[in-house]
Amino acid sequence: MATIVQAQPTSAAILRRRKFIRKGIASTLKYLILSLTASMFIIPFIWLLITSLKVTDQVFTDPPIWIPNPIAWVNYTNALLSPAFPFLNLMKNTLFYVLSTTLGTLVSSALVAYGFSRIRFQGRDFLFAVTLSTMMMPGIVTLIPTYVLFKTIGWVGSYAPLVVPSFFGAAFNIFLLRQFMITVPYELTDAALVDGANHFDILWRIMIPLVKPAFLVIGVMNVMWVWNDFMGPLIYLSDQKMYPLVMGLSAFQTQHSIIWNQLMAASLATCFPLIVLFFIAQRYFIEGITLTGLKGV
């Protein structure tokens, strides 16, 4: 009896098995597409690494060489120690540019966001509406007059035009921090006020610890933007000794009629610190991108 039942499975069982097979096909297809796309994204990276380790006559070959032989570590010493790409100096400039603007944007955005979220001053809502409206505004229109302004006061050729504005706040960062700060209960800050704390104490001891994740998101996003900023330094800096990494890389390319293996070594060195930071603070990078998307409009 039992064998007969097994030999003739019920229609429900057939359906279940079909569904199982269909699910199997769907999931295989899903992973196939994902892996295929993932390899399209990752192969350029691998090629960057491989090329940076090749001797010159292995860079362009038919068929392509996937395993450099010998492994030419010398490309890195050649590129990073060459006077055309003074890596340590470029790195020092980048770190200065990145850290000073990050400090500026964190301090100023915290102060302004606190004012918008905790103090009921007249005209606050109007000012906040103005802030929101500048958030989506294309920055292009301010480029020329801002340059003229900095030229007039003699700041062009220095880092001042690139760094000083960050100490006066940025619309999006203010908005983001304010959104987090208004979620902090008033009881908490009012109690501190009654106990005689001033607003700076409250900002520093209560608010900032409570909105730390938002703070880190802003910091990490600023590091990323400024690390990769090309147009700002291109417009405002003229002395090669002051160049940040991306500018140094661009200059390296134009001066040396493209020595690909060294150029790739220099490119990798330019983005390597940021990639390391990404793996350390991945959560904040991803949150940052996501918040930019969801908290906008």
Binding site: F41, P44, F45, T51, F230, L249, L263, S267, L268, C271
Partner: peptide
Amino acid sequence: FYLPGLVPAVASTLLWML
């Protein structure tokens, strides 16, 4: 998928020129 977004435009353009 996100990693390429970290590469500065100058570096990624050089890579793609290769």
